[in-house]
Design a protein around this nucleic acid. Structure first.
Lengths: 334, 334
DNA sequence: ATAGAATGGTCGAGTTTGAAC
DNA sequence: AGTTCAAACTCGACCATTCTA
């Protein structure tokens, strides 16, 4: 079995052992139907006996394709991508593509950007689930789909994103239906956060309600806390808060607690992303589900189609978000 | 710039344009000091003008090394690995290794295991941060470090893990110092969970306290909820609960709330992992910090050393965990 | 079903160059 | 002027596959 062979076992070794040519081994490896069952069996046996592992590098070099799809995300700490990856995988079922994930931080010790790394790796497709670099705006030379609403586009890429407008509208509608009038929005400066804010403004205007949007800041828990604290000091009459994401909502909750306001009795709270943290029973945060899994599934579809025909015109697909009602929203206090 | 060249630009094209041999281009690419500034400059200019991207596949094939480290984790949804990756990256600073992350689920549409995928990719090193497959116990033929306490070992691999015994002991000690006697443990069936349970038992025995460990179940929120619900029904006199991880602690908290017991006034609660979710102000869960970043840093060190000298005897390194005190522990009710 | 060219790099050995002895 | 030597550069075999014929 695990013979400590001096050199690696190659396709030649397998071919020799099975008594066939190396080309035939290659065919078996890639599951070609043009191989007789007897030969296939013999080759497979030789592979097992020798413990042969095909070299992906050689296959990529010779085949001009890596059979790999690269996924670039902003940050592993951002929980949103967990769903996205799950959907991506689902959409890739039935294909033989490998999936490789990189975040900008992970390889920050190298000068190179993740996108360039994947380009060097000759990926067959690229999923950019974060803000694209300006340098990549002109196109990256490989089938690409950009996920999420981004400030920066990538030429020739397909687009898949959640319809943030519908999400904010649903949140506003839910709160308005409960009787809230003074509904605030905790704004952030990422692409999706901007879009969520924009549509919050629209939804409020459509109802003739007064806007209460905070200045744009970061999108983490501390930013949510700070923004909410300022908001509560300036406009204590606010009875509901929509945050640009769940983490900010948690920060806001903390600020509310510190201000002696209870959720949802005094103030209703709606997050955005429906992240795992919102779903825990102890947090139980009403949140807009951005449908990451569905976005991932559609992104996979778009990518497969583009790899199949790189000349097809870029498409734009949006997914309807869903408001997940939990325990942080209630009618305003009388 | 972006000339839509028919075929890819290769090292030959760059060499020709710069008026040097392809070997010299290769030397520039890898930052060799044996190149005159003038030539280096010329080559770099040619690279920029042509938009050349080296082929990693070719480099790996020719160089017999991929300059890549593969990281295998159980599941992206497990937040623990976020810290681990951060530490890994830190430990890899100054090297030119690329880092690639795969979880078992992500490529589940392929028959192949992540480890085998990385073997085919000819990674220079492997970090296994999950339960190794039995098939890999005999060794995988590449420098490997296993992270965390696992039931299954990998021959020849270095080991880096948090000292779970010290973690459980710290939790028990903290609770005992607050005056708790009836301290329960929510057990799970993963490698680390078993170890945490084992040392909980030891720490309790050392203090002459009666054990209250639940039967081992899953390690997710629902499992924590179920285990705690049963525990509260069977042994309502318990005044403190240590969970095998944070998610289980959240589930337990929910069960406590449903039973009308408040945290920490009626029952104290300690989680394990110090995950981001525990750190949020709204949850504020006392938790044992498994020091993922430190583990990652040490894993990187061990791996670098092993890649440097594959014959060195396997090492075992443990990291002292730290109990992070937050708002879910207090003296028992009188 | 197979031989042989092609893929795009790396690597070690060898060649050139120019200055120092 | 001839020899020596290191630094700078080039040559060509080789890596393990796929693809064409």
């Amino acid at each position: 079995m695990a013979t400590t062979s001096t050199s690696r076992v190659t396709i030649y070794d397998v071919a020799q052992r099975a008594g066939v040519s190396k080309s035939l081994v290659s065919l078996v490896l890639r599951g070609s139907p043009q191989v007789s069952p007897a030969r296939r069996e013999a080759v497979q046996q030789a592979i097992d006996e020798l413990g042969y592992r095909p070299s992906r590098a050689a296959a990529t070099l010779a085949g001009q394709r890596s059979n790999t799809i690269g996924v670039v995300i902003d940050d592993f700490a951002n929980l949103w991508f967990v769903d996205l990856l799950a959907g991506l995988r689902e959409g890739l079922a039935g294909t033989t593509f490998h999936v490789s994930v990189a975040d900008a931080a992970l390889n920050s010790h190298l000068a190179e950007s993740p996108v360039h790394g994947y380009l060097s790796a000759r990926v067959d497709g690229l999923v950019i689930a974060g803000e694209p670099r300006t340098a990549d705006a002109a196109g990256v030379g490989v089938s690409t789909v950009v996920v999420g609403v981004r400030r920066q586009g990538v030429a020739g890429a397909d687009l898949v994103f959640a319809d943030e407008a519908a999400g904010s509208a649903a949140a506003v509608e839910h709160l308005a239906a409960l009787g809230h009038q003074r509904i605030a929005f905790l704004a952030g400066d990422s692409g999706p956060a901007l879009e969520r804010e924009r549509s919050y403004r629209e939804a409020m205007a459509a109802r003739g309600l007064t806007l209460h949007a905070t200045p744009r800041g970061g999108t983490d828990e501390a930013s949510g806390h700070a923004a909410a604290a300022t908001l509560l000091a300036d406009e204590p009459q606010v009875s509901a808060i929509i945050a640009a994401n769940d983490l900010m909502a948690l920060g806001a909750w903390q600020a509310l607690r510190e201000a002696g306001r209870s959720v949802p009795a005094d103030v209703s709270l709606v997050g955005y992303d429906n992240s795992p943290i919102a779903a825990t029973g102890i947090v139980d945060l009403t949140s807009v589900d951005a449908r990451g899994a569905e976005v991932g599934r559609l992104a996979a579809q778009a990518l497969i189609a583009r790899i199949d025909d790189p000349t097809r015109p870029p498409t734009t697909t949006s997914v309807q978000p869903r408001l997940v009602l939990r325990g942080t929203t209630a009618p305003p206090p009388r």
